[in-house]
């Protein structure tokens, strides 16, 4: 079976997505979980660019524009997530997910 460049790009993004998923599920540090989620978002962006580049209709810039919006939303998400991490740290003096079991107190 021949593997075209589109499939190589998709395999690349699948591998990146799985690395992010494993990191987000296995680590107990909140910052690393957030970074794993960022990796998964990046893998999704890779798919948009791959389909724009190798898809049947590259004249439409839809993939590129979607990735631009996605990067902006990911930046907002990272800012809010890290602010939440700092707020949690101020409450309980560490950033372990297992101990963040209270919303107030």
């Amino acid at each position: 079976m021949s593997v075209g460049p589109l499939q190589l790009c998709l395999l690349f993004s699948s591998a990146l997505f799985c690395v992010g998923l494993i990191g987000a599920l296995s680590r107990s540090n909140t910052i690393l979980v957030l970074l794993g989620i960022e990796l998964m978002l990046n893998a999704a962006n890779l798919n948009f660019i791959a389909f724009w580049r190798f898809g049947p209709n590259p004249a439409a810039a839809t993939g590129v524009i979607f990735v631009l919006f996605s990067i902006a939303v990911a930046a907002a998400e990272a800012a809010v997530g890290l602010a939440l991490v700092i707020a949690i740290y101020r409450h309980q003096k560490n950033v372990r997910l297992q101990e963040a079991s209270q919303l107030k107190g």
Partner: peptide, 23 residues
């Protein structure tokens, strides 16, 4: 285990699809 399962599903789906004609 979960990550490996998701990776397997994704890779099988990608490799199981016929390659499109590249512009």
């Amino acid at each position: 285990f979960t990550g490996g399962a998701v990776c397997g599903v994704l890779v099988a789906a990608v490799l199981g699809t016929a390659p499109s004609s590249v512009p």
